[in-house]
């Protein structure tokens, strides 16, 4: 085969792939038929989702998922991948649901959300006595900040950067990594002066890495609900899981888990939780 025909073949393959419609994950009926709820997860986000010393996936959301799945008569199977691959895989039908997802208007156009299991407030993490003494975006202007690639905190910072630039200030340079621990290493190494992510995750990191003298200097941006994402094709699965989450909330299970994993409880919205933009 010569180079030209190979080129045409490759072009056809690529265009074919781009035209292909995602198969879509299973509906509630299909999930019940296979008896297993397949959960796509990046378990590097303690206390929401992480692995214990035996390699088992644990955390706040996995515990709620397992309780909900049990009530529905389902087993839970985890598919682990980095966060930047999670949403593409969910849209492609690679698994049924993914937990611990900030609810954003942009995402809600392409995926559905189960009723939120948590609310997230982003905060700024820095080294004690370092350059960052305030979580005000103006004070971060011109500094370097580590974030997780493709996450809501990263996108929020990109939006705040536009506001900074509009007011004639230097934007915050963003270094995007795959996991939260990598962002903290970048902070510890002095490559970044701050990390922006969910506050409860950062508070946990401060406790785990006492050697680094980390400090949460304050909140940044508003708070957003955190829910489980489901493929838009599976509306009945979303509804069934939402009903289970509501039950676990009513019987106090969720409050108990919030105490266990976060050390405090949070109010959860039940409807109209998708932000307007």
């Amino acid at each position: 085969m010569n180079l030209k025909s190979l080129g045409i073949l490759a072009l056809a393959a690529v265009l074919g792939a781009s035209a292909a419609v995602p198969a879509g994950a299973a509906s509630l009926k299909d999930v019940k038929a296979k008896g297993t709820l397949v959960v796509g997860i990046d378990p590097t986000f303690s206390p929401f989702e992480f692995t214990d010393s035996t390699g088992k996936i644990v955390g706040y959301d996995p515990e709620i998922i397992e309780a909900a799945a049990k009530n529905l008569g389902l087993k839970v199977e985890y598919k682990v991948m980095p966060f930047s691959g999670i949403l593409p895989a969910l849209i492609a039908g690679g698994f049924d649901i993914t937990p611990t997802l900030n609810v954003t208007a942009e995402r809600a156009k392409r995926i559905d959300y189960v009723v939120p299991t948590a609310t997230s407030t982003n905060a700024v993490l820095a080294i004690k006595g370092g350059k960052v003494a305030s979580a005000d975006i103006g004070a971060l202007s011109g500094l370097t900040c580590a974030v997780k690639q493709t996450t809501q905190p990263e996108q929020m910072m990109q939006k705040l950067n536009k506001e900074l630039e509009a007011s004639g200030k230097k934007p915050v340079e963003l270094l995007g990594f795959e996991t939260i621990d990598q962002t903290i290493v970048a902070l510890a190494d002095g490559r970044a002066q701050c990390v922006v992510d969910d506050k409860s995750v950062l508070v946990e990191a401060v406790g785990k890495r006492k050697d680094l003298a980390l400090v949460v200097v304050g909140d940044i941006g508003g708070s957003t609900p955190i829910g489980w994402g489901v493929n838009k094709a599976d509306a009945d699965l979303t509804a069934a899981l939402s009903a289970e989450v509501a039950k676990l909330k009513a019987d106090g299970t969720i409050k108990k888990l919030q105490d266990k994993y976060f050390g405090y409880t949070m109010e959860l919205p039940e409807k109209d939780f998708i932000p307007a933009q």
Partner: peptide, 27 residues
């Protein structure tokens, strides 16, 4: 993965904005 902003890094960013993994990665 170490925040070098080359073509694949940009692609991940664009996919996270557009939610069009097939089309963008194929392109």
């Amino acid at each position: 993965i170490i925040s070098v902003k080359e073509l694949s890094y940009i692609t991940k960013q664009v996919v996270s904005r557009t939610f069009m993994p097939f089309e963008v990665w194929a392109g």
